[in-house]
Amino acid sequence: MLVDIKNAASPVSVAKVADEVAQKPSDKTAVKSTGQIGADFRALRRARGWTLSELAEKLDRSVGWLSQVERGVSEPALDDVRTVAALFSLPVSFFFSHSPDTPESLYVVRAESRRAMSDDSKGLVESLLSPDLGGAFEIVHSVFAVGAKCPQPFVRPTEEAGYVIDGSLTLIIDDKEFALNTGDSFRFAGETVSWINQGTKPAVLIWVIAPPVY
């Protein structure tokens, strides 16, 4: 799920992103990531269906530079990371929280190594359960605070499924309301969706999205 539940296919306000990034001190220093950040850039770009030139334009960078970053030949500056984070509604820390590069990191995500995809400022805390952003689907651990409500209904070109680990969540699919409780599961594809936690404790869900939207 997107942190701010935006439609993954909707246009991004580059001007708004630029304003947000401009409010922070500029930093053109290249970050050190052994190519991991570039791989994230590529996965995020492909998830949105953007070409190299489309993302390069949003970053005010050349296609050649972006291609080198995605292939791990060059490293982006912190300013570039901030811009990409804003474009995809991710915290900057997401790009610097990779698991240690070990043989198991390609397959396993330890509980203490989950990558945060949002904070609790909007009543929804998400972390990535998949080893990376590539692949045909992504798995997200989502915690909905009591009273948290989807800012607006969303539609995505995806097939999604979920399982309620704890608590309860009201899911609205095409104006049909479903009260989900611990142990319940769901699936939808292409419908208009919204949600609200009307329970008395946080709702904890596992959410699977195909293809990835982050």
Rank of each mutant, 00 (worst) to 15 (best):
V208N: 05
E138R: 01
F88A: 09
I173E: 11
R71F: 08
W50F: 13
V17Y: 01
R156S: 12
S185C: 15
D166Q: 13
T102Q: 12
R110L: 13
G123S: 04
S67H: 11
K6T: 12
V208Q: 09
L180T: 03
A145C: 06
V213S: 11
V3W: 07
W207H: 11
S121G: 04
T182L: 03
H141I: 00
S33K: 02
Y107D: 10
V213Y: 04
E20M: 07
P211T: 07
S142A: 14
S130V: 10
G199N: 08
E138D: 13
N181I: 02
I165P: 03
F144G: 05
V143P: 00
T192S: 13
I172K: 12
E159N: 05
S127P: 01
T34S: 15
S168C: 03
L78W: 08
T102K: 15
I5W: 10
S74N: 15
R187Y: 11
A9G: 12
E104K: 09
P211R: 04
E191L: 02
F144Q: 09
R114G: 03
S99G: 13
R82N: 04
V3Q: 10
A179I: 00
V73N: 08
G64S: 14
P131E: 06
F41W: 07
A189H: 12
V21H: 03
S185P: 06
R115P: 03
W195M: 05
T158S: 10
L66T: 06
E54S: 14
S113M: 07
L2S: 11
Q23T: 07
F41S: 07
A56I: 06
A15K: 14
S93C: 00
E126M: 12
S93A: 15
P202L: 06
E191K: 07
A56N: 09
F178I: 07
P151I: 03
D60S: 14
L59S: 07
S67W: 08
R46W: 03
L169Q: 10
S97F: 00
A47C: 11
K28H: 06
I165A: 04
S113E: 15
S10G: 09
V63T: 15
F41R: 06
C150S: 14
F188G: 11
K149V: 12
T102H: 09
T83R: 15
V14D: 08
V164C: 09
G183H: 10
G64Y: 05
Q152I: 08
E112R: 11
G167P: 02
T83F: 01
F137H: 11
D80T: 15
Q23M: 10
K201C: 02
T83C: 13
A43D: 14
E57T: 11
R48T: 04
